[in-house]
Design a protein around this nucleic acid. Structure first.
Lengths: 119, 119
DNA sequence: ACATAATATAGAAATATCTTTATATTGTCA
DNA sequence: TGACAATATAAAGATATTTCTATATTATGT
């Protein structure tokens, strides 16, 4: 039962839910998620760590990025996200997230991040 | 989105999850739930109030009992519980809960409650 | 109407969660 | 190899959650 409680707890936070729905589109590096959520990078790191620990997502190093993706072996999560995506078809925040992700790349987000940090 | 976050938050607590799966069997009064969970009655009341507020369950007075049941109009919750029930087919705690609920009644639980309070 | 049965609310303690700023780690490229 | 890019960890504050005990509410049967 604990596994399922953990899944529901993960899904009950807005930022984590948005991350999962973004990862359903494609694998993402941390700075792409940052570009969308506008919360501290360390907060994103913490959310990702939590979801990795309970098997919802996986990571892999690729160049100087760490790429996160949905866990392959979690059919329950996949079914849940599939259902959620339909229910949230008209959710403005989710729609916006999708637009940003489909119009950007790791390279662009990395550049934007650098600019923000130089200000 | 808030609606779904609330549903997931409700499901992320073990006691609330157990209550929902019991209510999936049949409507229950508070003292039947108490018989199963072994936590303070006021705690159960709080959990029920929370779930009622977000539309997961409904209540109705019947004699001196308040009978709680799953909300009729929440198809997302029903689908979730259906899926969960299958996943938790072999969960010992859930199995035990089901046994207790299928072997007791409001009347029996009310009596047991009275005994406990007289000790 | 009163006593009691069933449930709800108030208040408080312990713990958990989310977030930020500051600092550390790690790998890559010049 | 040294500087920097990308991400992670630590520490700390604010807030939320879960639970309990004690008390209140409300309806029912006598």
């Amino acid at each position: 039962m604990k596994d399922y409680l953990n899944i529901f707890k993960a899904l009950s936070d807005e930022n984590r839910l948005r991350i999962l729905l973004m990862l359903k589109m494609r694998p993402l590096c941390v700075c792409e998620i940052y570009e969308v959520l506008n919360i501290a990078l360390s907060t994103i790191s913490a959310h990702l760590k939590l979801m990795k620990n309970i098997g919802l997502i996986e990571d892999e190093k690729e160049g100087r990025w760490v790429i996160y993706r949905l866990g392959k072996d979690n059919s329950f999560l996949h079914e849940l996200l599939e259902a959620l995506e339909k229910k949230l078809q008209n959710d403005q925040k989710i729609l916006n997230d999708r637009i940003i992700i489909s119009h950007t790349t790791r390279e662009i987000c990395a550049l934007k991040l650098k600019e923000k940090q130089n200000i």
